[in-house]
């Protein structure tokens, strides 16, 4: 029997994974996995700032993630490779965030809740923020789908069609920041990247087109959230990590299955 907070947890989880699924596909296709993880780590600084300034954690995280993502996008190619810049900025932001949190001595902050999420504590207002952000990201990705896909296949093809690949990249970057901000309550900054990458990677062997992969990733995400909630309820384990564990088990299981049934694989 699901209590009210379990229903809210389920809805929160679904909101995050449904936005993370198509976005995660682009993260995988464009090899931005580290970008996603780094943006999420920087979010700790956002948490600290939000608490210091008494603004909503969602807003603080969104601003820092956006700032981080846009800065990295702008600075890439000017002397340093993207992964180097990400390594510097993400960990600097994480470290400054942790130090900043230590100054907030008068406020008791459960840092664990932000590092690993606290999906069972999701309230009505959180749900509204999560689904608002999630629907915005889903809308953006669907609206720009063909352009994003063309730019992912080749920047030059996109230019020749009159698109601006840098602008499409910025749309992905902004979407990523939004997903990080809404997911922080659900799985926390350390595990957000997992919800982007694992469902997409799990769906890959069973997909022949980008659309099928995005839908498959959404399916894997939904199964992970449902399975993770059920598992954590029955085994009394932390919910966010349990969701990621289920996703990882699905990845391993389905990939082995794909290798046993060669016809199900669309390509090597």
């Amino acid at each position: 029997m699901l209590d009210d907070f379990m229903v809210r947890a389920l809805l929160a989880g679904l909101g995050v994974v449904l936005a993370a699924a198509p976005l995660g596909c682009f993260v995988v296709w464009r090899r931005m996995a580290f970008f996603g993880a780094a943006t999420a780590h920087a979010a700790v600084l956002g948490v600290a700032l939000a608490i210091a300034l008494s603004i909503s954690v969602f807003a603080g995280v969104l601003v820092i993630s956006l700032l981080m993502a846009v800065l990295v996008t702008l600075l890439t190619g000017r002397g340093y490779a993207m992964d180097t810049l990400l390594g510097v900025m993400a960990h600097a932001a994480l470290a400054f965030g942790l130090v900043a949190v230590s100054f907030l001595s008068d406020v008791r902050i459960d840092l664990m809740a932000y590092l690993f999420g606290d999906i069972l504590a999701v309230g009505q207002a959180d749900l509204a923020v999560i689904w608002g952000g999630s629907l915005l990201v889903i809308g953006l990705v669907i609206f720009r789908w063909q352009a994003l896909l063309t730019a992912t296949v080749s920047d030059d093809l996109a230019y020749a069609e009159g698109y601006h690949p840098r602008r499409e990249e910025l749309i992905l970057t902004i979407s990523l920041a939004i997903v990080v901000a809404v997911a922080i309550k659900v799985v926390g900054v350390l595990l957000i990247a997992a919800l982007l990458i694992i469902p997409a990677a799990t769906a890959r062997p069973f997909s022949s087109t980008p659309e099928r992969m995005a839908i498959g990733a959404a399916g894997v995400g939904v199964a992970s959230v449902a399975g993770g909630l059920w598992g954590s309820w029955n085994l009394d384990t932390p919910t966010g990590p349990t969701i990621v564990c289920i996703a990882a088990l699905l990845f391993a299981g389905l990939n082995i299955l794909a290798r046993l049934i060669p016809r199900a694989r669309s390509s090597g």
Partner: peptide, 12 residues
């Protein structure tokens, strides 16, 4: 284009 690399993770 002269060459086009399609990432193996992208089903197309």
């Amino acid at each position: 284009p002269q060459k086009l690399h399609i990432d193996p993770t992208l089903p197309l």
